[in-house]
Nucleic acid binder design. Sequence first.
DNA 1: TTGTACGCGTTATCAA
DNA 2: TTGATAACGCGTACAA
Lengths: 338, 338
Amino acid sequence: MPKRVTAKEIAQALGISTMTVSRALNNRPNVDEKTRQKVLETARKMGYIPNLIAKSLVLRKTSTIGVVVPEITHSFFPEVVRGIEEVSYQAGYHIILAHTNENAQREISVIHTLISKQVDGLLVSISQSVENFEIYQQVVQRGLPLVFYDRCVKGLGVNCVRLDDRESAAKITRHLIEHGYERIAHISGPQNVLISEMRLKGFKDAVEATGIELDERLIVPGGFHEESGYRAMQQLLALPAGKRPRAVVAVNDPAAFGAMKAILEAGLRIPQDVAIVGFSDDIRAELMVSPLTTIRQNAYEIGRRAALKLIDLIEEKSNSVEEIVIHGELVVRHSCGC
Amino acid sequence: MPKRVTAKEIAQALGISTMTVSRALNNRPNVDEKTRQKVLETARKMGYIPNLIAKSLVLRKTSTIGVVVPEITHSFFPEVVRGIEEVSYQAGYHIILAHTNENAQREISVIHTLISKQVDGLLVSISQSVENFEIYQQVVQRGLPLVFYDRCVKGLGVNCVRLDDRESAAKITRHLIEHGYERIAHISGPQNVLISEMRLKGFKDAVEATGIELDERLIVPGGFHEESGYRAMQQLLALPAGKRPRAVVAVNDPAAFGAMKAILEAGLRIPQDVAIVGFSDDIRAELMVSPLTTIRQNAYEIGRRAALKLIDLIEEKSNSVEEIVIHGELVVRHSCGC
DNA sequence: TTGTACGCGTTATCAA
DNA sequence: TTGATAACGCGTACAA
């Protein structure tokens, strides 16, 4: 049980009132300069560290932001957190990090805890399994500032910072089209996940814009992982010779890795026989035998923008509801043959 | 400014005292079951969420752990944080994450803040640039529980959970020796960083144990990154034919990647001409043309153990000063030719 | 079983 | 410029 030095003790040591000590410590104007110096010096000597808990209680402000992260193992969210941290630190806010492990129940639990801890605002990326958004309605009703990042919930009138999945998918697909590829396939992600849906839509946008009829057989349900990409590609390669795709847009990089494996195992070359592109610029993308063309997502920027918006809400510099979109960057490497 | 429902308001609504409400809410025995039910129900109806700030102030306990992380971009620390999170959550503690960005001054600043926020304990991995440990002496003097993880400070009598760099380096070197390699080189890391030093020592331990004279020319200063590994390997390959190494122990995986590039560019084969091993099991290690043999470090376990120890200290279930060592695991792949 | 008084450490407010 | 008092929301200690 650590012993703490309080402002009161400093006051007693100097024979002055607690308020004067408080004022001196907080650089308030209405304190005699000599008194201030004495206070600061003895505070230092006594090893005084202010109790922000007590301060928060009276000010009704903790200068703390609750950050809810569904998953922390891969590189995306840590990078987002770095962006959040950077902005928050500059603005004098601290972060309480809560990890939900993609668990809907735990998500509710941690949000309750964060509210209990009186955070000034909430930055949330929802778990994949969440289907009940009541908790967020409650948060909104309470007037607690809230910004979703990356994984947003529509229709709640809540701020949101996200990637332009649809536009980026269209962009990378167009890139293939512009380089002359005609039969282009898409290995899609889980059907019920928003980003899969958006990337699929973007793919369709680009293909349909060419006026060419979309061949539904070239859209294969895959998943976010290597195995599913591998299987999906096998399925595509099993099509009759003339119907096979000349290029493939994978829903993300791991799926593309799996697909590449299937292509190579079939004795085909990348990109000479089948060109392929991914999505998300996985750290391994550059190291593949045929370095992968992909979309780079600026996770750091998502964190930065989300934190900036939240702090604006907290400090009432803004009360508009925005949807901030961070654009993906096309990274052209060898695998697309462009 | 969110409006909050307080225990007092519940009391007024029911015409009872705040204490009865408090008792009911905290499942204390001495409250009538009917009263308890009424309280719980109206609390729910009114959307009551307890104010942990006020609770912390009176209990002098926040159930919060401060976690100081020097760097959050790469996979190691997020994985540690996951381990910390898991244990803390189970034990009813929350985490405040503070990122120092390898900056000594910021490290002092965030520790002050965490103390101000009255965390019950501190989990710290020091920044590379830190040379003054006064702040940690202060923490110890205050009686605030502290555990270092991964990057420890010796001589302060502080608990520490770390990897067995020296032993692991010796282990992987011995593995090469046992498979018949004789001229084994080491690409070392920055001279002033503890883990570089430990790995170099481990390398020497293993080589010297064979009774063979250590050839100092086979120890080349490199660094933690690809470029430095590349340059160091070029230097090794420039040795007169008979003096060239037959196998190489790199200080970490990225350095090994650079070295591999240099080996292949020289027209040599891995492992037939030069065998190579790394350290840390980078996510890319498995994907190399010649998959890299390396040491896998269990970052999650470091986090888990550090949090367990800290919580024991906080709850006074332990007051011993320990040095907990997490052993690295040898991952044998193709690059060592074993 | 329930209620009252007080304190946790700090700041706002108003008076001196 | 300084100080006394009250308050933030809750729990402990004791009384009823």
